[in-house]
Simulated scan of single mutants.
Amino acid sequence: MPRFIDAKLFKFLIVGVINTIVGAGTMFLLYNVFECSYWISSACNYIVGGICSFLLNKYFTFKNHKKSFVQIIQFSVLLVICYLIAYIGAKQLVYALLADFSIKIRDNIAMFTGMCLYTLLNYIGQRFFVFKEENVNG
């Protein structure tokens, strides 16, 4: 069993910073400036960041050079599952805890919370499922 906290985690976080700058910037810009909905804004975050994340994590973080269409499907399914769990859960939690705040404040806090939860779930899924190291020792 590989260690959970190692160089791969730190590389994943570096890639995450890049994705966060691009994706979260897109999300908050769409929501706050262009007045797109919560769902469109947060979904665009992961459409934009997903492609970048796949390439950087595959080759830089996990050094996985396996050519596999199945891997692309696994990655895409993982993104959707993590997105739904993180953003539905975050919105429900934040709306319950901050019921007296405005919708705009609750949505921004929910998006930030969803982003953090998504990162954790996505790392676990990429490391131990999509880009899982093959055991060469048998």
Rank of each mutant, 00 (worst) to 15 (best):
K66M: 08
F60N: 11
A7T: 14
T113L: 10
G89N: 12
L9D: 08
A90V: 08
R106W: 04
I5T: 08
R3A: 15
T61W: 00
V70K: 13
I47C: 14
L84Y: 05
I18S: 07
V33G: 00
Y59A: 12
G16A: 11
F10R: 10
L55N: 13
Y31Q: 04
L79E: 09
Q71C: 08
K63N: 14
Q92M: 15
E133Y: 00
T113E: 01
A90G: 13
G138N: 13
Y95D: 15
D107F: 01
G89Y: 07
K58A: 05
F75K: 06
G125S: 06
P2Y: 00
L9G: 04
K91Q: 15
I88Y: 14
V33H: 02
V94C: 12
Y31E: 01
V15E: 02
L93M: 15
R106K: 15
F12E: 06
F62T: 10
I81L: 14
G25N: 06
V17L: 15
F54K: 01
I5Y: 07
F10G: 07
Y31V: 03
S76N: 10
G138I: 06
S68L: 06
T26L: 12
S41T: 03
N122V: 02
I40G: 05
Q74M: 11
L98T: 14
K91R: 15
C44P: 05
K66G: 07
A110Q: 08
Y123E: 01
M115E: 00
N57Y: 00
V15D: 03
G125D: 06
I73N: 08
F54R: 03
C52A: 13
T119G: 09
G50M: 05
F62A: 07
K67Y: 06
K66Q: 12
L55V: 11
K91E: 12
W39Q: 05
G23Y: 00
Q126T: 02
N64C: 13
F69T: 14
C44I: 03
T20F: 09
I88L: 14
Y123R: 02
N64V: 01
D100W: 08
V48I: 13
A99K: 15
V15I: 10
K132C: 01
L55S: 10
S42Q: 10
L78K: 07
M111T: 04
D100M: 12
G49K: 01
T113K: 04
C82M: 12
C82T: 10
L56M: 14
G114A: 08
S41W: 00
